[in-house]
């Protein structure tokens, strides 16, 4: 098993700084969804991780903790994530994306 980044929607949707989307070295990996936070009654949307593309470098964790000071991202073993976003389940929209969460571990 290996580590991937996991973003707390509760913390992220309250601040919505989007810094992690700009500092992740991998393209199309940390994405932003308006619905993910607003559906839960938060003011903003939330960032989320396409875990099949995450290489586990934890740069986003440093950026979230030290630059944004939000502490919203933790590294978690992929089999400990009950549900996560995967590239195949992500839909791009005009100004945001939506993701249907699914189990990241098959079998």
């Amino acid at each position: 098993m290996y580590l991937v980044a996991d973003i707390s929607v509760e913390i992220c949707a309250a601040k919505s700084c989007k810094l992690c989307t700009q500092y992740c070295p991998e393209a199309n990996t940390i994405l932003y969804s308006d619905e993910m936070g607003k559906d839960k009654g938060f003011k903003y949307g939330s960032a989320y991780v396409a875990v099949d593309r995450c290489k586990g470098c934890a740069q986003c964790v440093w950026v979230c903790d030290n630059m944004a000071k939000n502490n919203a991202i933790k590294m978690i073993m992929i089999d400990q994530l009950p549900k996560a976003a995967l590239t195949d389940n992500i839909t791009y929209g005009e100004k945001s994306t939506t993701a249907v969460l699914a189990s990241p571990v098959v079998g």
């Binding site: 989307t21 393209a27 199309n28 940390i30 932003y32 791009y92 945001s96």
Partner: peptide
């Protein structure tokens, strides 16, 4: 622009 990162498909792939 970079402020929209995370909301559009980027040209760089895996």
């Amino acid at each position: 622009s970079v402020s929209q990162m995370g909301s559009f498909k980027e040209v760089l792939e895996e």
